[in-house]
């Protein structure tokens, strides 16, 4: 997303990161008890991933997060008129770039007095799956810690079943952090 922001920012798109609640709190990074603590973790995120986009912090009890659907890593594109132009449950740079290109072409056509009518559209997105479990488990261990990883495996077993949880357990065993 940082690369996308660097390329599309000069074309008139404002990029920002809205910091919300910890998705997977653990012993390394716990839940937010204070707004100052929330900002401390936002700085840790900025420094870990070298985020150059403006980071905006939602209030402690998450009113904007709730208003937008409360998922941990969604992305919205909002037009100058204040209407949602694109939304995705998961941040996906490829479809965001496609949407920005599409929206910019449409805006240019309107500027040349071409008449357009809006319509509603949806897209079923797909995320890269190769090595996903290993990468995700590694992120949990490095972010929240072992407790965050334990809790996610337990939640996966409760919602998706034993096989899905076992895939995560196997991925975790491949990681050096998980070995005793």
């Amino acid at each position: 997303m940082e690369d996308l922001a660097a390329r599309l920012g000069p074309r008139g798109f404002a990029f920002a990161f809205l910091y919300v609640r910890e998705a997977h709190p653990g012993e390394l990074a716990g839940h937010h008890a204070t707004f100052a603590g929330k900002c401390d973790l936002a700085r840790r995120l900025r420094d870990r991933w070298q985020i150059a986009r403006p980071i905006l912090v939602d209030d402690l009890d998450g009113p904007l997060h709730a208003a937008y659907g409360m998922l941990p890593n969604m992305t919205y594109i909002v037009g100058q008129g204040g209407r949602v132009l694109y939304r995705a449950m998961w941040t996906d740079a490829a479809s965001i770039e496609w949407a920005c290109d599409y929206l910019q072409r449409e805006a240019q056509e309107r500027r040349t007095s071409k008449r357009v009518a809006p319509f509603y559209s949806e897209l079923r997105g797909f995320r890269a799956h190769d090595q996903y479990a290993r990468i995700f488990m590694n992120g949990l261990l490095e972010g929240g810690g072992r407790r965050a990883a334990d809790e996610f495996v337990a939640a996966t077993e409760a919602t998706e079943g034993r096989a899905a949880a076992d895939r995560l357990r196997a991925a975790r065993q491949e990681l050096p952090e998980a070995r005793p």
């Binding site: 997303m1 890593n73 992305t75």
Partner: peptide, 8 residues
């Protein structure tokens, strides 16, 4: 237009 990513 604004592109807003949510996360932690």
């Amino acid at each position: 237009p604004a592109v807003i990513e949510f996360g932690s």
